[in-house]
Amino acid sequence: MTEPWRSLVVIVGVLAIALLVIMAQVWLERRIIARWQDRRGPNRVGPFGLLQLIADVIKLFTKEDWTPPFADRPVFVLAPAVVMTAGMMSFAVIPFAPTIGIVDLNIGLLFFLAMSSMGVYSVVLGGWASNSKYSLLGGMRAAAQMLSYEVFMGLSLAGVVALAGSFSLRDIVEAQRHGWFIVPQALGFVVFLIAGIAETHRLPFDLPEAESELVAGYHTEYSSMKFGMFFVGEYVGIALVSAMITTLFLGGWLGPWLPPLAWFGIKTFFFMCFFYLMRGSLPRPRYDQLMAYGWKLMLPLAMLNLLVTGAFLAAR
């Protein structure tokens, strides 16, 4: 990646493909969940309902872009942009294949954690700036949930970092050449998966929007493309967490026969489907339960994992 034009091509390509995958996810999720509920899902617009996506985007764009008069206008407009930007920024450090990837930061993992923390701001600010009670409740829940799950999200990855001896995602993938980290780090994997779901506030951890109690939580007052940004931001989160799980625990692009990019895609796809499965089958926990799991179960587990990994490495 010496010539600047090559990096430019990669950046534009990654952005375009990431956006495409994210949009396709909306369709994919509806089809797959429909399948699990013995339905067919959208299949009218275009072949297999693929153009449903475009129809939905057109619909979103033509909706009235309404800012409530009681809202804090600049923050209200800024909030949805933050979640998109933070999510897309994280894609910069993900190594898709040995030669494809935007940057190879030596602190790639920390960058990812930092960017995913930025996502919290978006939700909290959105809830605050809307100046309505449901939004505020959603925003408060999001703040508490995402901050507490962030704690052990980082801790659960400490084992991986210790084993690989590097924060660079590329080095972490290379370190898995002789065995994926999901085996020695099974506990860390489970904790990271759960933290990842909570971090993207997807079901079953969608308490910030909890439509059965909070209308739509932090994005109650949003409409049109501003709502669309939150919506897409959620799918960016899914793609991102799936890609991170693939990179950190499943050996990223490593795999026999197929080209590296294909392996990366297959593994990521598998985890995205797992996200949909969670949405299709699990009920939402109560808020205090969510907090209790986080601090009383997940945090000790993450600590234990780190402790055992550390002891193992020291003994070796």
Binding site: A34, W36, D38, R39, S281
Partner: peptide, 15 residues
């Protein structure tokens, strides 16, 4: 529940 829902992948939609 995850497993039970997943099994529906192989079932015909009733639509």
């Amino acid at each position: 529940s995850l497993w039970h829902v997943f099994k529906h992948t192989f079932r015909r939609p009733i639509t």
